[in-house]
């Protein structure tokens, strides 16, 4: 067995983990499984693709590679714009679709089915605008560096790992050390009591969308940088995202990140042992196993 699966697994796991943080926050605070979350990943990747392409067109120097990386300054600048645009998209979807449904106090299943509809609409709109042909942020080739122990990784891959770790830590600190983080945890535990305490639940809901969609955008950009950009990229990640969110324990940010890495490593191991065609089955097996054996997940508390 090649030790390379460790690097491959951690890199894909970091992207799954970032996406799973958004899923776990939405699930615990808005109390529904948002199946449109994968589309925020795709839209984040395409927003960055469009903005970086525009910047590269306006100033060729911005597209020139930075140091050992395959991309120029146009991509980091576009990533910031993409986070803002994807957060705006999430707020728009909430205002148009989810908020009216929440205000009617309908069953959770209605919100879940609405998220399926939103996912379909967003994915098809993306395909209509950008076509289904894969796109790339850069066509520059990178040589993987030796990491020791028979493992290799490109500078882009190592950067993605570092960014994912920093973002996960930042979100964890936001939730545990700041006033808005306390409010988010309070609403997650008891929305009615939160109102009595003086928390404006609408502002907490807005924060959840901004945070979840922003992290999804970063996950999308990383996936686009390391693999490719496709309208279905979010859909392909959806099952691993939910597997990681449930494995980590709903509401637990460190849990989502660690579980994302576990799912990524399991996928990499499966590809090497059984073949690439079994990759998609791994998340499903983990999801079923955790629901049967420990429904509260690794870091969650039993209801």
């Amino acid at each position: 067995m090649s030790p390379q699966i460790l690097v491959d697994g951690l890199i894909s796991g970091a992207m799954i983990g970032l996406g799973a943080i958004g899923v776990t926050l939405t699930y615990s605070i808005l109390r529904f499984a948002n199946f449109a979350h994968g589309e925020f990943i795709s839209w984040g990747a395409y927003f960055a693709f469009a903005v970086s392409g525009l910047l590269g067109y306006l100033s060729g120097g911005l597209a020139a590679p930075i140091g050992p990386f395959s991309f120029g300054w146009s991509l980091p600048i576009a990533a910031v714009a993409s986070v803002a645009l994807t957060a705006g998209l999430a707020l728009l979807v909430d205002a148009v679709l989810f908020r009216p449904l929440r205000s009617r106090r309908g069953a959770v299943i209605i919100l879940v089915m609405a998220s399926f509809g939103a996912a379909l609409a967003l994915r098809n709109l993306l395909e209509f605008i950008f076509t289904s042909r894969p796109d790339y942020y850069t066509t520059n080739l990178q040589i993987a560096m030796r990491l020791g122990g028979g493992m290799r990784a490109t500078p882009d891959q190592l950067l993605c790992l570092g960014v994912a770790a920093v973002l996960a830590l930042a979100v964890h600190l936001l939730l545990t050390r700041t006033a808005i983080g306390r409010s988010m945890r309070a609403v997650s535990e008891n929305p009615q009591l939160s109102g009595i305490v003086g928390i404006d639940i609408r502002s907490v809901v807005r924060m959840v969308w901004i945070l979840g969609a922003g992290l999804a955008a970063v996950a999308g950009i990383m996936t686009g940088l390391i693999v490719q950009i496709r309208p279905e990229m979010g859909l392909d990640l959806l099952l691993p995202l939910f597997a990681a969110a449930i494995l980590g324990g709903i509401g637990s940010v460190p849990g989502a990140m660690i579980a994302g890495l576990i799912v990524g490593l399991a996928e990499a191991l499966t590809v090497q042992v059984f073949g690439a065609e079994w990759r998609a089955a791994v998340a499903f097996v983990i999801l079923v196993a955790i629901l049967l054996l420990r429904p509260q997940g690794l870091f969650g508390r039993p209801e």
Partner: peptide, 25 residues
Amino acid sequence: AFVPQTENIFTTLSIQENLQLAAAI
């Protein structure tokens, strides 16, 4: 200020965090 009959504190938060939440206004 209202104190409900049940579920009137945030059990997953610390004592200090419960008071900090209320003091945020």
